[in-house]
Amino acid sequence: MESVQTSLHGRTAGLQARIDLAAMLSQEHFEQEREKIFRRAWLPLCHTDDVPTPGSYYVQDVPTFNTSLIVIRGNDNRVRVFHNACTHRGNKLLPEGLGSSRTLTCGFHGWVFSPEGALRHITDEHQFEGVDKENYGLVPVTSEVWENFVFVNFDDRPRESLQDWLGPEFYARYDNGYFDRHENISTYSFIIDANWHLGVNAFTEGYHTLYLHRRTARDYQGGKINPQRHRPHMELMRRHTRYSAPANPDHHVLPMEAVAIKHGRKLLPSFDFDYSLLPPGVNPSRYEYWAFDVLEWFPNFVFLTGNHGRNEVTFWPISADRTLVVNRTYAYKTRNLGERLSRDYFRARGRDVIREDLSTLEVQHQMLKANVLPHVVLSRQEMALRHHFSVAANMLAAD
């Protein structure tokens, strides 16, 4: 039987099927990307859920810019982002992770800052000549909130608002509390010896799923009606992409999976086909046998959104050859022990699938760096990759 034909939306004219990816792996090229792509992009950093009350904070290192950021909720309930540096001698105020404090006190010399970033106390202040506390607050980073995502922009003067960056295809299509339905059930990070493009590419096509995931997720996509697992729906936006992954209506449920389904909800490799309560941005084509959507927020954020959970994977480039990968898994909020155990089963399955997605990156990078291939070739099912490289080229060419 023929596979489902992809409903493709967006401009494809000019997208190249052959990409000289090896040419993008030099440190010189990466330094251009850092300034013209990453510095100008709106980058999702965390969630407002991570800083739920005044004084609560989330700290994350951002190796792309060799900095550390504090996301903190002020006493006015506003979420702000600052560089994690005391304005006295540059000492980090906080370690990575979550916490809460009414004030931020530097462990080096005891300077104290408010959750709004103002400098409140200088130890032995009369010994400092001509220092006005008003001029030595924490250094802010431009930030905006969309739904429950906190975005940052490292440009001195952002070229566009977050709303313009996301575009109408995203901005108003997830506004029924979809992201608030889920809670974080695992977070892990690691450094891979591979370029960031390869990481993003690993998640923005489904061509590999029949082969790479043949042991962990076997028949979770496609089935008899779609043996090559073609994406039923794909959107190419100004900068971002979204596609829907096809579930397998003939999926064979294994005994342990059946127990998990009995006591909880379907996440992976089984899927709940009822999308009636989902916002229009999730499964936008309302495909009957839908598994989940895969979205790329250019340049470095990929998330998989399903009926009862999602995965968020961020690729922070360290250099041309190294990338920090952060994976956060979210799922429905459990009501009892049975649901908790069921959710943990599906969490483990998802972890193994994502590890497989990442498993090819270092060897790809090695062979591309060997410069033995004149180019990589991309199919129509890899149209999101073609689009990714087109957006990157356009941003590099911009003034």
Rank of each mutant, 00 (worst) to 15 (best):
residue 95 P to H: 13
residue 95 P to Y: 09
residue 95 P to E: 15
residue 95 P to W: 06
residue 95 P to K: 13
residue 96 E to P: 03
residue 97 G to Q: 09
residue 97 G to S: 09
residue 97 G to H: 05
residue 97 G to R: 09
residue 98 L to N: 15
residue 98 L to Y: 12
residue 98 L to P: 03
residue 101 S to I: 07
residue 101 S to H: 13
residue 102 R to P: 12
residue 103 T to R: 06
residue 103 T to D: 04
residue 103 T to H: 05
residue 104 L to D: 02
residue 104 L to E: 03
residue 104 L to W: 02
residue 105 T to K: 11
residue 105 T to Y: 02
residue 105 T to R: 09
residue 106 C to K: 02
residue 106 C to E: 01
residue 107 G to F: 06
residue 108 F to P: 04
residue 108 F to L: 14
residue 109 H to K: 11
residue 109 H to G: 06
residue 110 G to P: 01
residue 110 G to Q: 01
residue 110 G to V: 04
residue 110 G to A: 05
residue 110 G to W: 03
residue 111 W to D: 03
residue 111 W to F: 09
residue 112 V to H: 07
residue 112 V to A: 15
residue 112 V to P: 04
residue 113 F to Q: 00
residue 113 F to S: 01
residue 114 S to P: 06
residue 114 S to G: 15
residue 115 P to E: 01
residue 116 E to F: 00
residue 116 E to N: 10
residue 117 G to P: 00
residue 117 G to S: 04
residue 117 G to L: 01
residue 117 G to Y: 01
residue 118 A to S: 11
residue 119 L to E: 03
residue 119 L to C: 13
residue 120 R to G: 04
residue 120 R to D: 05
residue 120 R to I: 06
residue 120 R to Y: 14
residue 120 R to T: 10
residue 121 H to R: 13
residue 121 H to P: 02
residue 121 H to Q: 14
residue 122 I to L: 10
residue 123 T to G: 04
residue 123 T to R: 02
residue 123 T to I: 02
residue 123 T to Q: 06
residue 124 D to G: 13
residue 124 D to R: 10
residue 125 E to I: 08
residue 125 E to Y: 13
residue 126 H to P: 05
residue 126 H to V: 12
residue 126 H to A: 14
residue 127 Q to T: 12
residue 127 Q to M: 14
residue 128 F to Q: 06
residue 128 F to H: 08
residue 129 E to H: 13
residue 129 E to I: 15
residue 129 E to A: 10
residue 129 E to F: 15
residue 130 G to C: 08
residue 131 V to R: 00
residue 131 V to F: 04
residue 131 V to E: 03
residue 132 D to N: 09
residue 133 K to R: 12
residue 133 K to W: 00
residue 133 K to I: 04
residue 133 K to M: 07
